[in-house]
């Protein structure tokens, strides 16, 4: 996994030094601040205010995760730099993991910088540190799952815009599963509801400061599934 570390470092350097990385990070923080102002200000209850902040921030994180991830492989293919990786002794899993964890680390930095917002609520209201932690864990896991979806979309398309559309389409589909499940009968109703990306696992748990292991497992499973698909897709395209 040495190559994964090497690729991780390069990608992190790109996020931190490039104008796109800086703009994306700044925009994410701005929108999270706006989410706090718009959604959090609707209520006087600090617990509710925190939930509303997480509600708005989850949308921001989904968008940012798509932006951060769709370029990861498609840009390399578009510019031809993928040939350096393809002709080096690097495994497909190392390429995918190096890139994914760099995007995840950058997302974690954005989340870490935004912590001042819930700390402001905590200083004036009655919320606990664990509520903040669980909410942030939820944002992190949700972001991880969307990043993995974006990486997968990025392995499919050469054009970043196409990858973004494909990634967004998969995310929207997973966000609609809960609504779709309400029109069905069990057991399909329960299965689709559990596969939903946001309603059950984020809104029903993390957003309210409630930690359920099954929600965490769900996001880890989605992340793993789409990373696995990414590796397999890259394998097929690399040595075809």
């Amino acid at each position: 996994m040495r190559a994964a570390t090497i690729i991780f470092r390069r990608e992190m350097g790109t996020y931190l030094k490039s104008i796109v990385g800086r703009i994306t990070g700044s925009l994410a923080l701005l929108l999270m601040g706006v989410a706090f102002q718009v959604f959090g200000a609707k209520t006087q209850l600090s617990g509710e205010m925190l939930s509303q902040f997480f509600w708005g921030s989850s949308g921001v994180i989904i968008g940012v995760a798509i932006i951060l991830s769709v370029r990861l492989v498609s840009e390399e293919r578009q510019t031809g730099s993928i040939l350096l990786l393809n002709t080096s002794p690097v495994r497909e899993a190392e390429i995918i993991l190096g890139k994914f964890f760099a995007a995840l680390a950058f997302l974690a930095i954005i989340l870490a910088v935004s912590v001042y917002i819930p700390l402001l609520i905590k200083s004036e209201g009655k919320i606990t540190g664990s509520q903040i932690f669980v909410g942030y864990l939820g944002l992190f896991l949700l972001g991880s799952a969307v990043l993995a979806i974006g990486v997968f979309a990025s392995t499919l398309a050469k054009q970043q815009i196409v990858a973004a559309v494909v990634g967004a389409a998969i995310v929207v589909l997973l966000l609609l599963l809960y609504q779709l499940s309400r029109k069905l009968d069990p057991p399909m109703k329960d299965i689709l509801a559990e596969l939903d990306l946001w309603w059950i696992h984020f809104q029903g748990g993390f957003m309210k400061g409630v930690f359920n292991l099954k929600d965490a497992v769900y996001y880890v499973a989605v992340t793993y599934f789409f990373l696995l698909l990414s590796v397999k897709t890259l394998e097929m395209k690399r040595w075809q």
Binding site: G13, K17, S18, G80, L84
Partner: peptide
Amino acid sequence: FLPENPPLYPE
């Protein structure tokens, strides 16, 4: 390997 278009990272 040096392909027709060198695989470079401009940044």
